[in-house]
Design a protein around this nucleic acid. Structure first.
Lengths: 344, 344
DNA sequence: CTGTTAGCGCATTCAT
DNA sequence: ATGAATGCGCTAACAG
């Protein structure tokens, strides 16, 4: 449980040591490092050799301390690195960041607003040039521009009401409605809903889409068939178990994200395997794609979208904001389309 | 394609501005920031208020410049953030790093040694305290202690021959052998092999285990049934297509990692769906677990292990090395056990 | 208890 | 074409 602060025994060579080794002044080394303008080729060569021999690496932290220099770091806070959805999201951000010569520094919030606050504060302390965040749903007070010290922020996947901030969203309402419609068109009327806690932005929106599609048929969500609050696969499995144990179990399930979809499928598979099948297994519509969805033992409709593209778009928004031409421009809210892939 | 270096318009307040605002000296602010020892409570209060009002965040980069301080950053280089395997690995590293008050900075190498070199060099330039790396398989010249400036390094999943470095491996040979044995015991004799390029450390080891299990039955790998070099799902799908199109297709497939397993299953599913089934679909044994493995239309044996635990162990090794009691200690090589879960 | 001095590694500015 | 001085933000070490 130690805290950083202790120096490591082994120190990196500095520009001075390189200079001494090469028999030049530190400035000649510095100039060589920056492309070598106004340095005699033979001196450059000598410097380069010294750099190699000493294993010198320019100290980017010291460098970024100078006026006019920045760290080239982008802070990324997501809920969970282990969720392939967010892994791909982070990959998209990293991809675009790399194109701009930036590196990403990552932290998982685990949906914990306190941890998010701490993470964001740390990122700012490390002088990140920008932040990409999947907000965990707290108040968002810590995300006001002054608390952020003016560091540009882009929200992804989830928005923040009443705050003027660049955001990339999905068409949650439309996608959920369309996915639900697919189930309705297949003849289902007893459709269950699985989703995150209500405090999660997307959960609300996707439930709204779900309810909207039902309403088009004169139906309303049945409280008995609504399970919200599952954050991981295990709890989704438990929730599905309850649904399927009902006297009148649902004939279809709409799942608001991939964790819930996978949990539901685990439970369905368990029942198919143990043979304790009271009736037919429910069809599934899943917001979020997942690997191998096409091989499931029940029909699976996918409300598809690419988390990696979500990450790319978020990064693009950020770099647009970092470009000096955009200072003070109003926040942009981008809503990415979804694509419904019907069960086969 | 810009490069970092331009200052952002909005500057963070400094300790000096806080000091002026609070009517004290910078040192009083600094001391307050570090816990407030030897500072009068009323002054602390004033400082804290100023900090809040100005939105001050301590500049960790400047701080780490001081002697005796480090950055609290751990560099993590993996092949691909979007692969859930590595996402979970990174999560394990992050988890342990967070326990030690460290943050991780991540980059994907995409199996490209040049990118890996560049990434490692950048990490060192950012004064990371340690490196966790899934090596991409090049020579490893850039990983010698002096090139690393003495920054501790831990390799994960893949080793590096002839170099004395802390490493966490899986029991690749034993696991692959055991997985292959499961197929043999199920009566298969025509078993195909899907794997990464031979240059990838694990690919060699897992092939070795595969061949060893065959040898125990007096069999040898059939060149016609060996496909190596697939790095992603799409190419694994193509390779599987070729295998299943053979005049005498394999009755089982051993896949050396989850990308190949998923690709194989996609192709199998495609054939089941289109009905172009020449014969029965092959059974599968997969090194690496993957979500929903239990729901596949063919028997799937899993050579199971936890990438997150791999990440944790790697981080533990790193922090053991960072602890001052371990300087100069010989490298440790940890081999994590695997667990074979038979097809049901 | 508080403030002043000095220097961490680097690069901009100003000499030479 | 090269080097010396200076200061980025911060905090040990040393006054007071």
């Amino acid at each position: 449980m130690g805290v950083p602060g202790q120096a490591r025994s082994n120190k990196q060579p500095t520009i001075r040591e390189v200079a001494v080794h090469a028999g030049v002044s530190p400035m000649t080394v510095s100039r060589t490092l920056s492309g070598g303008a106004n340095v005699r080729p033979d001196l450059q060569e000598k410097v380069l050799v010294s750099i190699r021999e000493l294993g010198y690496h320019r100290n980017e932290n010291a460098r970024s301390l100078r006026p006019g220099h920045s760290t080239g770091l982008i802070g990324v806070a997501i809920t969970n690195l282990g969720n392939p959805y967010y892994g791909n999201f982070a990959l998209g951000v990293e991809e675009v960041a790399a194109q701009h010569g930036r590196r990403i520094i990552i932290g998982s919030t685990g949906e914990d607003p306190a941890r998010e606050r701490q993470l964001v504060s740390d990122f700012i302390g490390r002088q990140v040039e920008g932040l990409v965040l999947v907000p965990s749903g707290g108040s968002g007070d810590h995300l006001s521009p002054d608390r952020l010290g003016g560091v540009p922020l882009v929200l992804a996947s989830r928005g923040l009401d009443g705050r003027d901030v660049d955001t990339v969203l999905l068409d949650d309402v439309g996608g959920a409605a369309e996915g639900t419609r697919a189930l309705l068109e297949a003849g289902h009327t007893r459709i269950a809903f699985l989703g995150n806690a209500r405090s999660v932005f997307t959960s609300e929106r996707r439930f709204e889409g779900f309810a909207r599609a039902l309403a088009e048929r004169g139906l309303v969500p049945d409280d008995e068939l609504v399970e919200r609050g599952q954050q991981d696969v295990a709890s989704a499995e438990v929730a599905t178990r309850r649904l399927l144990d009902l006297e009148h179990p649902p004939t279809a399930i709409f799942s608001a994200n991939n964790r819930n979809s996978i949990g539901a499928l685990h439970e369905i598979a368990r029942r198919l395997k143990t043979g304790e099948v009271a009736g037919a297994m429910p069809a599934l519509a899943s917001f979020d794609a997942f690997e191998l969805a096409g091989l499931m033992p029940v029909p699976v409709t996918i409300v598809d979208h690419d988390p990696r593209e979500l990450g790319r778009q978020a990064a693009h928004l950020l770099f647009a904001r970092l470009g000096d031409e955009s200072v003070g421009r109003a926040a942009r809210i981008v809503e990415l389309p979804i694509r419904v892939v019907a069960a086969t």
